[in-house]
């Protein structure tokens, strides 16, 4: 008999509501709002309640796609990241660091957002950092 609940944070916005994700026999189930969470106190919005649905969705992208002249092509993470690094460096060298901007996200953790702005400022030399929650 295999049933586990994993305490986590809703990935959808910056509020950070607390939820348990149940795993029954290896399958992910509907979130259970965490009653002890100081912010959400056992409540979720419809996005939180649906947070598990994309995991097994047929529409989910499971490999990185690179945009080419003839549409999107599947590639590996190594190739995709190499391409991103090469192009970012090219743009910086040709047009200067402020030709670049870095968008961070409410769906990432505080720490991930910190690393992203560090990359922008310390590695590429630009303060162009913005966030999807700047509505």
């Amino acid at each position: 008999m295999d049933y586990r609940t994993v305490l986590t944070t809703c990935p959808y916005c910056g509020s950070g509501c607390g939820m348990y994700l149940p795993v029954l026999n290896g399958k992910l189930g509907e979130p259970i709002p965490a009653k002890t969470h100081p912010l959400s106190q056992g409540r979720l919005c419809i996005k939180g309640w649906s947070a598990h649905e994309h995991v097994a969705s047929h529409d989910r992208l499971t490999k990185p796609l690179v945009k080419t002249g003839s549409g999107f092509k599947e590639t590996t993470w190594d190739e995709a990241l190499d391409l991103v690094v090469t192009r970012l460096l090219e743009l910086r060298d040709r047009h200067g660091p402020d030709s670049l901007a870095f968008l961070v996200s409410a769906k990432c953790t505080n720490e991930e957002n910190y690393l992203q702005q560090k990359l922008a400022r310390a590695v590429f030399g630009t303060n162009n950092v913005d966030h999807c929650a700047r509505l």
Binding site: G18, P22, A34, T36
Partner: peptide, 25 residues
């Protein structure tokens, strides 16, 4: 666990130390 309470399947007697009754789910 980790200061939070949620549903749990106790499959061995070793985990029972964390069993609580509140808040109710």
């Amino acid at each position: 666990e980790h200061g939070h309470v949620g549903p749990h399947l106790f499959s061995s007697t070793d985990d029972l130390g964390t069993l609580v009754l509140e808040p109710r789910y």
